[in-house]
Write a protein that binds this DNA or RNA. Structure first.
Length: 124
DNA sequence: ACCATGACGTTTC
DNA sequence: CGAAACGCCATGG
């Protein structure tokens, strides 16, 4: 956290908040969170924020956040060897080869679930 | 101030 | 359909 601009702090906090809102047994993607925060182009920053959140005292279900392919790309950053996978499996999510099985079924999009889809036509 | 890196995503070959 | 390159934005050296 050192020298984080106000804007960054806001972004960081929102990322943690949204991640905490992910229901039990569900997963979301970095892109979905980024889009929900209005920074679709900064999907990488979501991972950056979550990475920083790991050292926070507040528990953040970062294991429920995967990349667009449903791959547990961040599992390498969790303590232990496959903590992320174990956490997901303990929630009823089946993981195979570092990828979430039936990813679409477990996918939880904040833009849809939170009903903030008013910013849909932002593409054009 | 510049270059290299990263828990991503999309486009191009 | 699979791999590579590019783009984004912030951090670290």
């Amino acid at each position: 956290m050192s020298r984080l601009s106000k804007n960054n702090e806001n972004f960081f906090e929102r990322v943690c908040e949204v991640t905490r809102l992910v229901p039990y047994g569900r997963v979301t993607t970095y892109g979905a969170i980024a889009r929900y925060l209005g920074a679709f182009r900064s999907a990488r920053m979501v991972g950056w924020a979550l990475n920083s959140s790991t050292h926070l005292d507040e528990w953040v279900p970062a294991h429920r956040v995967v990349n667009r392919n449903g791959l547990l790309t961040g599992k390498n950053h969790f303590p232990g060897s496959n903590t992320m996978q174990q956490l997901l499996e303990s929630e009823g999510i089946r993981v195979e080869d570092n990828a979430v099985v039936d990813f679409e079924r477990h996918f939880w999009d904040p833009n849809v679930e939170l009903g903030a889809s008013k910013t849909w036509q932002m593409t054009e």
